[in-house]
Nucleic acid binder design. Structure first.
Ligand code: FES
Ligand code: FES
Lengths: 141, 141
DNA sequence: TCTAAACTTGACCATTTTGGTCAGGTATGT
DNA sequence: ACATACCTGACCAAAATGGTCAAGTTTAGA
């Protein structure tokens, strides 16, 4: 089970953004330099964050991105959902009554995987961008 | 974040094994048929489980595998560790003081990822094979 | 003793996912 | 007009995944 870079970068970038967006929009270039994330990759990520209304964009010189919601209302769940970083503990479709590869019944450990998925998602639902800002005040880069 | 088939299969197979090993060793062929897992793949998995002393093997006709410990003492942690299904939320080495790709300092979200890793591992440490047996008594296949 | 069941080992491989890059474009403040 | 910065989509190399295949060795039972 590993967290992909896309998800990790998305959160890193948003924390960075949240710290600096008090006055002016923050350019991806700045985030890229501060956090050491490829600019081109950031653009892909922010395109998705924008579609999911987590950030707003301001074009042109002095443009950049701004948060579209209160940091307290942006949960990790929302961020991960936006960039398609999903928790997946089973292989079959969740909704289906059937099991993996079209079997008639779910596997013997299916309950377990459902529990696990809920356990992880709970963590994501309970963490907001605000929490992360407070949590790292002392380790500012 | 997804759970790989190797980890999922390892647990499925061990639950199956735990149910049937009361009298005789259980052959991988039987597990393969009951759980719908490729025999060749199961062999790779059990090779690792054996190295980690989770199961014992009995060769020859009527041979198979047997649990090497009390189901209560086999935690998901042990199983996943055996088959190299590890939880990895960061990209850099955990022990190192340095950050990703040789940076001087850890990233701004590093605490978060550590928390997440602990959160997930806690789940694995608290679940034993015994729990799974009880939990699924009613959904026996 | 012969044979079949079942473990053992290691190489191999197609497909998918990941983690990007690159090449254009468009909007806008100065 | 021009530099800055967002926007879009194609493209791609490397790694991980989820296996298969081949060639053994061991041992119970006929
Ligand atoms: S994971 Fe698909 S049936 Fe349980
Ligand atoms: S994940 Fe590597 S520095 Fe935080």
């Amino acid at each position: 089970m590993k967290l992909t870079s896309k998800g990790r970068y998305a959160v890193m970038a948003l924390v960075d953004l949240a710290r600096f967006d008090n006055i002016n929009p923050v350019s991806l270039r700045d985030i890229s330099l501060r956090q050491g994330i490829s600019l081109d990759y950031l653009e892909q990520i922010f395109s998705k964050l924008k579609k999911n209304e987590i950030v707003k964009s301001i074009r042109g010189t002095q443009g950049g991105y701004v948060l579209n919601k209160n940091p307290n209302d942006i949960k990790l769940t929302n961020i991960f959902h936006a960039v398609d970083e999903k928790v997946k503990t089973v292989q079959c479709k969740k909704e289906s009554k059937k099991g993996c590869n079209g079997k008639a019944t779910k596997c013997i450990t299916h309950n377990l995987w459902d529990e696990l998925e809920i356990h992880i998602n709970t963590f994501f639902e309970n963490k907001s961008l605000k929490d992360l800002l407070n949590n790292n005040k002392d380790t500012r880069v």
